[in-house]
Design a protein around this nucleic acid. Sequence first.
DNA 1: AAAAAAC
Length: 683
Amino acid sequence: MNAPRRKARWSTEKRAAKGRTPQRRRTDSAPSDAPMNRKQRRALQFGDQQGKYNTEARRDDAPRQERDERRSSERRDDRGSRSYDRRDERGGRSFDRRDDDRGDRRDDRGGRSFDRRDDDRGGRSYDRRDDRGGRSFDRRDDDRGGRSYDRRDDRGGRSFDRRDDRGGRSFDRRDDRGFNRDRDDRGAGERRRDDRGFGERRRRDESYRPAQRFDTRRNHEPRGIEDRRRRHDHDDRQGFEETSDQMEWTATTAEAVEGEVTSGFFELGVAEPLVRVLASQGITDPFPIQAATIGDALAGKDVLGRGRTGSGKTLAFGLPMLTRLAQGSPVGSPRAMILTPTRELALQIADNLSPLAAAVGIDLTLIAGGMSYGPQLRAFERGVDVVVATPGRLIDLLEQGAADLSQVDIAILDEADHMADLGFMQDVRTLLDACGDGQRLLFSATLDDAVDKLVQKYLHDPVTHEVDSEKASVTTMVHRPLLVKPHHKNQVTAEIANREGRTVLFARTQLGTDRIAAQLRDAGVMAGALHGGLTQGARARILTAFREGAVPVLVATDVAARGIHVDDVTLVLQVDPPHDSKDYLHRAGRTARAGHEGVVASIVLPHQRKLSRRLLGQAGVGAEPLEIEPGTPELREATGARPTSGVAIPEGEYLKLIAPKQQPRRRPDGGQRGRGRGRGRRY
DNA sequence: AAAAAAC
């Protein structure tokens, strides 16, 4: 991680030593700077290509030793140079590389801001591709998966020679601007704590072309990989029909009850406008966790609240937060921050709190990945008061200098046990460190060592309120471990999924959810997969289709295990065992919410018996596995399972249900669609 | 021990 940056390698001195002209950082406007038409770009590219063959020849003459050295010792930093090579090689080698169809078009585009986005994409797609391995057969990433490492190595070796050949051609100059390097460095692992920070990147950026940044952003908008692919069929410059697949979020307002109101929230000290809005939603009796924590939170104490999601935690921290903020006045940057582990959860919290915030004149916004930057940047520009965020995007904005959290006086972690996971911990710390040293509210389903570390470091003299046990204590929930023979697993899964009512299935991996959902549709059960590998738009659409009942079966990874609330989920089926008892309970918590009944069935294969016993024991579930086979009355009795029709649901029928709503893109008014129409999500 | 979290 701390390997020397390859930047040094190309210092002016070194270049001079090699008999090269100094690198040009700043140039006059050049072809690549201005929009080019396709023909011009082709011409340029062709020229590049010609040069490239020379380059290839020369490459072989280059000192092999040096290449090998780079290969072995500077892998990560090599990636910085990758972008040069990728770009340059593309022209000549398209026939043997799968992603070249992308590449060529990328070059076609010419315009600078696009380059930047493309570079971003290029770098990341390697990372993701490699990470994911063969995850999604239906995505094009995987065609390439196996080769990416080789290619990377190739590049590391070549880049150096290649670079020397490039002279001052306009395309090369683009590479010199420094984004590529910066971005790739970041991709290499230190990304968030790149010590050069965004400041320097931006300076260079601006020196190249001032006032470019927001154009860049705007063009940045489409995020999904699939979208980007599709985009290449169009000329980006021409306002083509963009197939963005992002989710949008808008703040909402709500009615408030007029006149006399009786509500338990008054007594807790919640601001009156908030109580009136709650009353209009029929919420007048605080849930236990709310009753327990609101008082202390209002008093400004640090609170550690333990209670399962669905127990009313959002209001437990939301109401005191808004009440306190309403007593002060905005300072031009956020005074409160709420962090959550998934985008869906952030969305849900923002949806729930935004009408309340509006009632007391608080500007609350959602900051999450997979959504366009524009509204989020504007929110900070206008001085948003509360951010509900997922860590990644907020750090992104922080690094850009777009977000300032120094005035945050109330920092809230929802699902803190999850936020304290290894993968999240550093981000959470970064964000908490960026906040002012004010009140901290930490809500968690469990208290383990990781949470304790957060508590130790960030909470001052916290008051702990434990309302729900972490153990299974929901009396309306029935647990049914099902002992199933391996060759029956698919059919049992399908028969259970085919039951009446809304059902959530959990699988271990993204690939697993895709596969199970496809198998279910093959068997005639309308099911959709939800996992973090989908574009944000796709995630939102499948969740909506599930909420609305068009798709009654949701097959999800643990992305949906926490916090997500869908009414009337009457059965949760754990197709694959959860990783631990916490996950078991979080998954289970998708059903039997708010006093409703629900069944938690778990498929247990013979070799998983021991594991299952341990998980259930830790979760405080006493149920013994029930031995079952497909089509039996026992299975039906336990889960409501029904035989499947076996008539496959055509893929098109499913896709129709989760298709993006067609809507005009890039409207002349700047793309503000449907503002002020109804609630939250639109796609 | 997987998934999620920026692009």
